[in-house]
Design a protein around this nucleic acid. Structure first.
Lengths: 204, 204
DNA sequence: TTTTGTTTTAAACATTTGTTTAAGTCAATT
DNA sequence: AATTGACTTAAACAAATGTTTAAAACAAAA
């Protein structure tokens, strides 16, 4: 096997294992040996391929952030779509994404906490949100008197209503309040409900 | 100094330091030496007073859960109050509490992730929520046809709208989208807005 | 077949980290 | 003043954890 072939074998296997373990336990609690074990691959190869635990984490974190913010950015900065359309697109896209990766929000937030350099990487994406065409449209709506509160409220409500069920998910499932299937159904239903709720909040 | 006096000195100082460090970094990343340093107290005293890092964490976690769920439980199980009153009370109480302890939700969630035995401790509180008088009232409302979706949606929206701003807070502040003062003002305003929004979601 | 460069392995290393120990300090009691 | 018992300290210990090393395995090239 030459290097090019190996890349889609050992290295990729390790990366997937790392993503899983980091997601499940967080950076500090995830041990390099856990990752190696999860991938069924020799411990030393983690450092062989990625230099260090930290480097590996940053690699995965960057990919995750990309996945989370890339599409959304395009949606909320599309100057040809209405607010309602943007909301519908964001909600639909995000919920679909999270249904496939339910642990993303928790992974994400747990590293917000640890702060330090990892947080900085996300801050820029935060700016993108609050300087977006979407927010400008909201501000215009407010100027018309159709919103009687700070536009950031709508932003937070939208993201919050999308994301929160996935944060509560472990509690919901473990407590038996909902089953996995019920959970999916409810969240799926929210694709239509959230845009509805959001328009009800304004006088549109 | 006898033991009774010391209790409000060294032991309490350590507990406060532990709360701060655990909150800031999460269980795994918080080192016993960090806690001792934060309290300016000799390393060995952590084990002297609390037996182990884990025991200390559990102590603090229990107190935190108590603080988070105690009052709420009473509110949502009060059989003499209407849904609207319950919502108003929960929102008002929770937001006030979180304004004083903005880091609680993040602390909380970061440990949901690490799972294991720590999660179990919270599960029961989850059940209390979803078996509450409040949820029964919601179910009744649904039976009348005034809600066209699973009642758990209202529950999640309520909690989500209360909690989410505090989860996004580090990002909001660091990105410069909001200042500390603005943040407080917006969240304070939400005390009135959230109950309003929630009633708009139903046909009440 | 021998050589070459890459990948894999088991073992070792150095540091970090939770915990314990043994001796010291100090205030109250005898 | 001596004793007692709780608290404090510096040092040490043992386990864990990230990283490195030196040798082996292996596939492709010569």
């Amino acid at each position: 096997m030459t290097k090019a072939n190996i890349d889609i074998s050992t290295e990729e296997k390790l990366k997937e294992a790392a993503r899983a373990v980091f997601t499940r336990k967080g950076y500090a609690a995830a041990k390099v040996r856990d990752i190696a074990a999860e991938a069924n691959i020799n411990l030393a190869l983690v450092n062989y391929y990625f230099r260090s635990k930290e480097k590996l984490f940053e690699l995965i974190m960057d990919e995750t952030i990309q996945k989370l913010f890339d599409k959304i950015q395009k949606i909320i900065n599309d100057e040809s779509s209405t607010i309602t359309e943007k909301v519908e697109n964001v909600v639909d896209h995000y919920i679909s994404l999270l249904l496939e990766n339910p642990e993303l929000p928790l992974f994400f937030l747990s590293e917000v906490m640890s702060g330090s350099n990892k947080l900085t990487r996300m801050t820029n994406n935060g700016k993108v949100f609050f300087n977006s065409h979407f927010v400008k449209q909201l501000a215009a709506l407010q100027a018309e008197g159709k919103i009687k509160f700070h536009p950031v409220n709508l932003m937070m409500n939208m993201i919050g209503m999308i994301v929160f069920p996935f944060l509560a998910r472990p509690l919901l499932l473990k407590s038996g309040a909902l089953g996995e299937k019920e959970f999916r159904a409810i969240v799926e239903e929210r694709k239509k409900l959230i845009p509805l709720w959001l328009t009800q909040m304004t006088n549109m």
